[in-house]
Design a protein around this nucleic acid. Structure first.
Ligand SMILES: [Mn+2]
Ligand SMILES: [Mn+2]
Ligand SMILES: [Zn+2]
Ligand SMILES: [Zn+2]
Lengths: 127, 127
DNA sequence: TCAAATATGCAACTTTGTTGCAAAATACTT
DNA sequence: AAGTATTTTGCAACAAAGTTGCATATTTGA
């Protein structure tokens, strides 16, 4: 993977953000220095390389966040932490310390990945 | 809520579908009889009235499905079943019989709703 | 049956995401 | 260090998704 300006900046943006980011967030945090298309492609590259993961949403605002070390644990890449979306401030974060509970599927279904998004009020908004 | 042609048709589409539907799915299942905008507005109305719920996704294809009776159980509306997305056929379904397991959040976070989407291979695709 | 309330369709627009291609940047070889 | 091959970028041109205002049509309910 070539080390380019764009990739470095986008990685920096992730590294210095406490919350998960939308495509739009990234675009503006890079001061619109990079083309929209470049960002789409960079995000896809980062996903392919296992650097970031997506967080599903119901509002057509997919968010992206860095993967942590634990992801690469058992041979194959596997994010297995819970995500939290605050309904007050809108922030989405990875709760790296909260692991996704096991779930038993009806027979015949085979499981590959679980995505869990919890919404409510975050710590800072609650006070 | 007024009982209109559009609403009746869209509700029928849901009632006769085994899988969750995207906006696009609904549009074509109604043979493009209704304006795109009407469908957006109808879906929003159905959500507001607690008739349907959204299923989050990472591919900008939000899906909608009927709520079941259990939702209205304890006073306030609450979907608490798991969703399954088959990576082979692409279908998304509500696993009404599988309830979302409890998850313990770090202190300070207050929980309102949990969304769980499991992906893998579905029963029919596995055979 | 009529008036008020509500829902619809259309137009116009914004935002999001995709693709092909030439130019630029990066990596690799000598 | 220079030159070549490979990869990445930006741009243009699209396609698809989602929003809003407003006039018209449909529903409701008096
Ligand atoms: Mn995460
Ligand atoms: Mn469901
Ligand atoms: Zn918050
Ligand atoms: Zn399947």
């Amino acid at each position: 993977m070539s080390l380019t300006n764009g990739r470095k900046s986008i990685l920096d943006v992730f590294l210095s953000s406490k919350t998960a980011l939308t495509h739009q967030d990234i675009e503006s945090k890079c001061s619109n220095q990079f083309d929209r298309v470049t960002i789409y492609r960079t995000l896809q590259t980062f996903i392919d390389k296992g650097l970031i993961h997506t967080i599903p949403s119901t509002d057509s605002n997919i968010r992206y966040a860095l993967c942590n070390e634990a992801c690469l644990g058992s041979g194959h890449h596997h994010d297995n932490h819970v995500h939290f979306k605050c309904e007050r401030c809108g922030d989405t974060i990875c709760l790296d310390e909260v692991t996704v509970p096991v779930v038993k599927l009806p027979s015949g279904y085979s499981l590959r990945e679980i995505n869990m998004v919890v919404s409510g009020t975050c710590r800072s908004c609650k006070k």
